[in-house]
Design a binder for these strands. Structure first.
Lengths: 211, 211
DNA sequence: TAGATTGTTAATCGATTAACAATC
DNA sequence: TAGATTGTTAATCGATTAACAATC
């Protein structure tokens, strides 16, 4: 009963969904059956109004006088987030960050499958990291096509990132999880999600200095 | 000439500062001397109005008819972000992510000094990662006090994170860079900057599914 | 039924954009 | 000086919060 067809949901709302999902998962694990927007708002330190507005972007998930069924809402938000779809990822860059992400295996059960790992450094090619063998960059395009990869993770320094993104887009990758500290220039139908760690540390630095 | 004394700058503005800083750094490296809000707005794909409003939260950094001096503005934003202050960090968790962050050494020249690395796993205690030796968790409090640590990085699974955060706060750490997938509960004068990688991947997933 | 709580409309608040006088 | 561009005020837009009728 999703009603977001054609509607444009703001990124502010979308950015809050994973946190709802996490809290509902915790409630579910704790065996809680139902929750009102008021009680959830106290737990999460947001307003009950915001919670109801957010959910109502996507459908009517609650029931007057009762609240929300935890299991049901958890499942629905999972669907909205696309976690019921299978995704196939590759990681570009087998450095420390590439390692860390490869082994971040708790994604697997959410439908994210890490299929391959690439690096341009001949020293590391052939190394095994988790289940994955490091492959040379030249094999990337072929691998993407043959394995139906839809998401690529860029975990290399900024110098090579823009060029790699171009290559990824050219062979049909639909989304890029970008850890390189640079803006990628991709067509508007390709999704880019940036994780700029140094931006995050600078924000911390600001708040620490000016508190 | 900062005029943000007492003023409350919104987190939206602060979150944009590191990106300005990066673009100005690139311009500086390219030998560009001055830039107008208009030209910068084209490069950064934001409005010139927003740029001028953002900067004017902190002072009058430009000159009518001229624009902004790149070197000067770069330095000023660096100061605003607190990058001229020296910070001393420890990392809790010597797993893959702890490794990656330890070696993320380009922070050093911005005044972030990684001083110590802690883990509860006896197998890894004593290991050397970069310049740092992994120390046992029991030594954490002592180390923080003796080395004047002001920032702690939490790079352990969510299970232990809340308790570790309590310990950190109790011995005077002023800011936490939190990579654990859990909300920390700390006094309001302690800064928490969250990096929830799975939230980021779920946001990507949403945008990929609903584009 | 009476009480609780949603879904939704209206009011408020804050952030972004536009406009322009000031001025280099 | 004339042209360019800032700093800042005013207008607009969007997001959050409040309120309440609908209804379980």
């Amino acid at each position: 009963m999703q009603k977001n067809e054609g509607k444009n949901i703001s990124q502010a709302v979308i950015a809050r969904l994973p946190r709802y999902y996490r809290f509902l998962g915790d409630l579910k694990d704790a065996g809680v059956e139902r929750i009102s927007s008021k009680d959830l708002s106290i737990m999460m330190k947001v307003t009950a109004s915001q919670i109801r507005q957010d959910f109502n972007n996507f459908g009517e998930f609650g029931q007057q006088g009762y609240g929300y069924n935890v299991d049901f809402l958890y499942e629905e938000i999972g669907k909205i987030l696309g976690l019921t779809t299978e995704h196939r990822l590759i990681i570009i860059g087998a450095g420390n960050l590439g390692h860390a992400l490869t082994n971040y295996s708790n994604y697997e059960n959410r439908g994210f499958h890490f299929m391959g790992l690439f690096d341009r450094n001949e020293q590391v090619i052939g190394d095994k990291i988790g289940d994955l063998k490091v492959m040379p960059m030249e094999k990337m395009e072929e691998f993407i096509r043959e394995n139906d990869i839809d998401i690529a993770v860029i975990a290399i320094p900024k110098a090579g990132a823009v060029e790699v993104a171009d290559r990824l887009v050219r062979c049909g990758v639909k989304a890029i999880w970008n850890f390189a500290h640079v803006d990628l220039n991709v067509p508007s139908d390709v999704i880019v999600e940036n994780v700029h760690l140094s931006d995050s540390l600078m924000k911390l630095s600001y708040n620490l200095t000016n508190r």
